[in-house]
Design a protein around this nucleic acid. Structure first.
Lengths: 217, 217
DNA sequence: TCCGACACGTGATGC
DNA sequence: TGCATCACGTGTCGG
């Protein structure tokens, strides 16, 4: 190993010419091996360069700026663009983060300056995130009306075919374990609606075998 | 120009040693100049590499994936992330662009494959964009119920405290000028709600002289 | 030992 | 002419 021979670059073209440190017998085989290794090495390096440059070309097509840009400037542009998009995405999902890739139903107690001590009322925050269906909102409305709760406030947000509905509910507390009863009944009501949505989604899926793009903030 | 001298790399370290092609007089000055040029060249190239690699490092901090990633893989990751964010951003502002800096109410005819020739029905698209108020949705619901229209579909979107509600309505056409009557009545109904919202906004503004953060896509 | 990723110096090219 | 960028082959390190 470490043959430590001097290699010179031919001035005319980039081709390589051996200049063995020692002369004599038994050098041809070693030279051939070294030469082959060097060749495969340079080829591998060229493939790597091609991979990276292909990605650079793809990036050039993604930035709004014009073609023919320095690699460094292009990367700077991409960086600022990613930062901007991350910022606006964070702003858009400030109190509104809508998961695009999974449904969810959530019911929890919601304590918010409930200072009137004489009243025995507790408030809930119930949210459901799913695909949008035309009758989703009316179903939700109906289900909530059927529950022993009062609708304080509703926040409905949509983003790309997804809808997140957050309901702030108030219920009168009639016993120590009534809380859990109300919570679980709200939860099951929303879950029922989510099941219906999922069912109709699977139905539509047989026609449009969609795969939703993954998002990650 | 084109001194065409053979340069060899010293095997021990990366330092360069001259090996002039010709011997004799008048070569030292030329060699010194070439050497200086070569040195500044390599230094410039190193600065360029440092710039690019600094951008690579910045990108590594922006992608959610872990550190120590191939440049190629990193670029691929950035590409997919930019594509995703572009897609969701475009998707978010597709039919949803919510002006943050001014309110508006819009009512217009909405022609959408209304092919059933026997029916004399026309459809409307009514939208209202304003700050969010807790009773906004119920007021809207009430106002629409009081109008001689049928609610086909509703799209409610919120972004940073702003809410845009788009209603697709159907009305039966009972006369040639009944269209305009319905349109104007819908418009005035929404305008009334917008006035109420604006009034409560001005009231709140005296307590919270807010300045909403600007967003730009 | 081989292979992949990186940094380096250098030739080529455009302004 | 000098000063930028880029592609190339190569040395080197780590798995």
């Amino acid at each position: 190993m470490s043959v430590k021979q001097l290699l010179v670059l031919d001035g005319e073209k980039g081709e390589l010419v051996k200049t063995s440190g020692r002369l004599g017998k038994g050098n041809e085989v070693s030279d051939a091996k070294t030469l082959a290794a060097l060749k495969s090495h340079s080829e591998a390096e060229r493939r790597r360069r091609e991979r990276i440059n292909a990605h650079f070309a793809t990036l050039r097509g993604l930035v709004p700026s014009n073609e023919k840009m320095d690699k460094a400037t292009l990367l700077a542009e991409v960086i600022s663009q990613v930062k901007q998009m991350k910022k606006t995405a964070a702003c858009a999902s400030e109190g509104l983060h809508i998961p695009m890739d999974h449904d969810e139903v959530q019911v929890e107690e919601f304590e918010e300056n409930q200072g009137n001590g004489t009243e025995t009322i507790f408030s809930l925050k119930a949210s459901l995130c799913s695909d949008y269906r035309p009758d989703l909102l009316s179903n939700l409305r109906q289900s909530i009306d059927d529950l022993p709760v009062k609708l304080l406030r509703a926040e409905i947000s949509t983003l790309g075919g997804r809808v997140k509905s957050v309901f702030f509910l108030a219920a009168s507390e009639e016993g120590p374990e009534a809380r859990d009863v109300v919570i679980s009944s709200v939860h099951s009501a929303l879950s029922n609606i989510l099941d219906k949505v999922s069912a109709s989604a699977e139905y539509a899926q047989s026609f449009f075998p969609r795969k939703r793009p993954r998002v990650s903030y």
